[in-house]
Amino acid sequence: MTVRRGLSNIFEHKATPYVIMAVVLILLLGPIYWTLITSLKTLPEAIKWPPSYIPQDFTLEAYKEVLGRSPVPKFLLNSIIYALVTTTIVTTAAVFTTYALTRYKYRGSNMVLLSFLFIRLIPPISLLLPFYLILRQLGLINTRASVIIYTIYLTYPLAVWMLKSFFDQFPQDLIDAALIDGASRLGALFRVVLPVIANGIAAVAIIAFLWTWIEFLAPFLFLNTDDLKPITVGLYYFVGDETTYWNSLTAGAILAIIPGIAFFMFAQRYIVSGLTAGFGKE
């Protein structure tokens, strides 16, 4: 019992959370740090044994190599296009759908909501084959549309599911008051509901963006030409046979990560508060 009490005191100590966080941050950020510094080394230094933990010969050579040799800027642009288009379509559609399903119920509307949950549980990889067959039949293989169609399917149900809890928490009285004041039902949505749950919508949009950003398998299978590839796929092609050029490979990896990290720095408040509200009160 005394051991237990002692342990308990250690955990209860004020400094403990900081110690745990230090360890966790090393585990979580260590790989990113290691990738970053490898990308700043020369090739001989990158494959030196024992490895150096701080680059001795700080150089941007690897980045020049990556940007000069393969169309990485184009890949990044493609990723942004896919992510933005998907996010816009999905967020807009999901707002209307969720508003209708949570506030204007009709026979079967609960069934529809449940199906969204159900869809989220079907592994996307299971539907890769039929998607592939359909796209082939429609002649959409190797087009931007093929990827966007797939990422909409990937993100839309989750967007509805997450938005549902925001709409659920919104007091019906406020909507009713707006309606009595003469606002239309859509007017109430735009003027009363949306400003209040803006945080939540931002969170949903960010998640849709990220999920599209990191998607690999579908664009890998649907696209053939360099002009259309997103960064995840472009990077995979790039590294394939060049696994020995670790400094260039890691430089490519950093380029693929940076936009996502920038997004988090910029919008972390929305994500945490949005997700907390969205999932915290189930």
Partner: peptide
């Protein structure tokens, strides 16, 4: 700290594979 903890989320899994492979 919360922002820092989220960084790995921005890493595409395919890239995570490369990073850990390295």
């Amino acid at each position: 700290l919360r922002t820092l903890v989220m960084f790995p989320w921005a890493v595409p899994l395919i890239v995570s594979g490369f990073i850990w492979g390295w």
